[in-house]
Design a protein around this nucleic acid. Structure first.
Lengths: 223, 223
DNA sequence: TATCGTAGAATCGTTCAACAATCCAACGAT
DNA sequence: ATCGTTGGATTGTTGAACGATTCTACGATA
């Protein structure tokens, strides 16, 4: 039955606006479209061969995902987070991930493995100097933490927060180096969880957030 | 200067789609447009005197706010939460509000007052049998709790979750009675916070969520 | 020189009309 | 009673058009 559910999801993926939005999202997160850039309706619509109305619909989907921002009568821009945005993002993450982590003892083993596995992957990839994928594994680690909450709404919202944070990394020119710096923290958090000392793991996570926020904010306000 | 910022917000309030979305949101939350109802583009667009494209844009804004759901090639519907949705919503609230409440000792006095005041108001209004406004005060209480996190993104997302929950109340025919039932809980939580026993307050909040979720789910799956 | 205002270009906001694609309900065949 | 089929209704998408807003560059004034 799971294959049927999968197929249904693929079928529903129709919609030109959805496909355009997916393409643009990829371009933005890859860095081809830099934060702060204005996306002209005419230029992009012409390049992609879709009408303005459809393109505007794709824009709306991406503003919902925090990828773009819409300014009335001025157009849409690739989101360009500043220091205040980063502080806000980490304030949200502290509450969400801290709250989720405290559910460690109440969740399924599968959910716990979704936290442990990405750290193992990140370590393995870092040893091979495969840093681009180390970052992806780091994100998976945090997605696993949010997953402990058991709410798809919360996981979806966190994905949007992560996307915004990725843009902040890009503005700070920290796309690759950032994640590996904090890899030891993640490893320590998993150790503490495995020891059953959940509160200590939460505290460690908070320290990670403090350090990461301070680092990122200083690099953003330096510009 | 605050008046200037206010004026700017008013000026930016333009956009036909935005006004249409505001009107529709009100109609939905008031109950005029029932959960599950399909909103015809032609009918509503004609009634409101706006073009289909503009109306579709308003629809997208409301799907972002969890008021409407969009089904491809079928149209948009007033969201109609089911039991699984409610469980997901409370899973999210447990983590968000629990995590926010634990920040009690780290936040400003103003933030703490934003939690205490709504409970006082709710008590006063309940004594006057003003139940419709009791519910509003109850929501303010929980908004105050989320506000302890100090993240506008998290507060905004919580507002969307609350809106969805309001729809669930409506489906369960519990719009008015629900909030006052749990007023004693809120009062107890504030007492525990004032006593400085934050962890006990969190535990009390969790019990509130357990009871509220169970109540609401049973009424939803009964249909 | 610097500030201000203005004209014109560029772009967005919104509408309208049209057609293809999809969904739905009624009908009839097996 | 279940399963195709056929129209009719609704959404998806396009293209063009025009008013409204923003931006840019130029020139006037102090």
């Amino acid at each position: 039955m799971s294959t049927l559910a999968q197929g249904k999801a693929d079928l529903e993926r129709a919609s030109t606006a959805q496909k355009v939005a997916d393409m643009l999202r990829e371009r933005v997160l890859d860095g081809e479209l830099e934060p702060g850039l204005r996306l002209s309706e005419e230029a992009i619509g012409g390049a992609l061969g879709v009408s303005r109305n459809t393109l505007r619909e794709a824009f709306r989907l991406l503003t919902r995902d925090r990828i773009l921002v819409h300014e009335h009568s001025r157009g849409v821009f690739v989101r360009r987070p500043n220091g205040d945005d980063v502080r806000d993002l980490y304030a949200a993450r502290r509450v969400i991930e801290g709250g989720a982590l405290r559910r460690w003892n109440d969740v399924s083993e599968k959910q716990r493995e979704a936290v442990r596995t990405p750290v193992r992957q990140a370590v393995a990839r870092a040893e091979k100097n495969d840093f681009s994928r180390t970052g992806a594994a780091n994100i998976q680690f945090h997605r696993g933490i949010v997953g402990l909450a058991g709410s798809v709404r919360l996981s979806d919202e966190s994905d949007r927060l992560f996307a915004e944070l990725m843009l902040a990394f890009r503005v700070a020119h920290e796309v690759e180096a950032f994640h590996q710096t904090y890899l030891p923290w993640n490893r320590k958090i998993v150790e503490l969880l495995n020891d059953g000392t959940v509160e200590q793991a939460v505290q460690q996570l908070d320290e990670y957030f403090d350090a990461a926020e301070q680092d990122l904010v200083s690099r953003l306000t330096a510009d």
